Deep mutational scan, measured.
Amino acid sequence: QTVVIGDTTYHLNNPEAAQQIAKELAKKYGLKVVISGNTIKLK
C-alpha cells in the first residue's frame, strides 16, 4: 500500500493502517483522500 502526501511517499505493508492514517490526516488537515488501485493520495 502506497500513501502519497504532497511530495512524500510512504510504503505500508498494512492496507487498513494506511487507509486509517490517510483518513485521520485528511480530517486533521482538511485534505481530500483519493484512492486508486493500491495508492492513497492526500490532496
Rank of each mutant, 00 (worst) to 15 (best):
Q1A: 14
Q1M: 15
Q1K: 09
Q1G: 10
Q1P: 11
T2Y: 13
T2F: 13
T2D: 07
T2H: 08
V3L: 14
V4L: 07
V4W: 08
V4K: 09
I5N: 03
G6V: 05
G6L: 07
G6Y: 10
D7M: 14
D7K: 15
D7E: 12
T8R: 14
T8W: 15
T9P: 04
T9E: 05
T9N: 03
Y10W: 09
Y10P: 00
H11E: 05
H11I: 11
H11N: 07
H11D: 06
L12E: 01
L12R: 03
L12N: 00
N13S: 12
N13V: 08
N13P: 14
N14L: 10
N14Y: 07
N14I: 10
N14S: 14
N14D: 11
P15F: 14
P15E: 08
E16G: 08
E16T: 09
E16F: 11
A17D: 11
A17F: 10
A17W: 12
A17K: 10
A18M: 09
A18P: 03
Q19L: 15
Q19A: 09
Q19R: 12
Q19D: 05
Q20A: 12
Q20C: 14
I21M: 14
I21A: 05
I21F: 15
A22M: 10
A22Q: 02
A22G: 03
A22K: 03
K23T: 09
K23C: 13
K23F: 14
K23W: 13
K23S: 10
K23A: 11
K23N: 12
E24S: 13
E24C: 15
E24W: 15
L25F: 05
L25R: 00
L25C: 09
L25S: 00
A26K: 05
A26I: 05
A26F: 11
A26V: 04
A26R: 06
K27N: 06
K27P: 01
K27D: 09
K28M: 08
K28Q: 05
Y29W: 05
Y29F: 09
Y29I: 02
G30N: 07
G30Y: 06
G30L: 06
G30W: 08
G30D: 02
L31R: 02
L31G: 02
L31M: 09
K32H: 10
K32R: 07
V33S: 01
V33F: 08
V33E: 01
V34L: 07
V34T: 09
V34K: 04
I35W: 08
I35M: 07
I35L: 06
I35Q: 05
I35H: 03
S36C: 14
G37M: 05
G37V: 04
N38R: 05
N38E: 03
T39C: 14
T39Y: 08
I40R: 01
I40T: 01
I40V: 05
I40Q: 00
I40C: 00
I40E: 00
K41T: 15
L42A: 01
L42D: 00
L42C: 07
K43C: 15
K43W: 14
K43T: 14
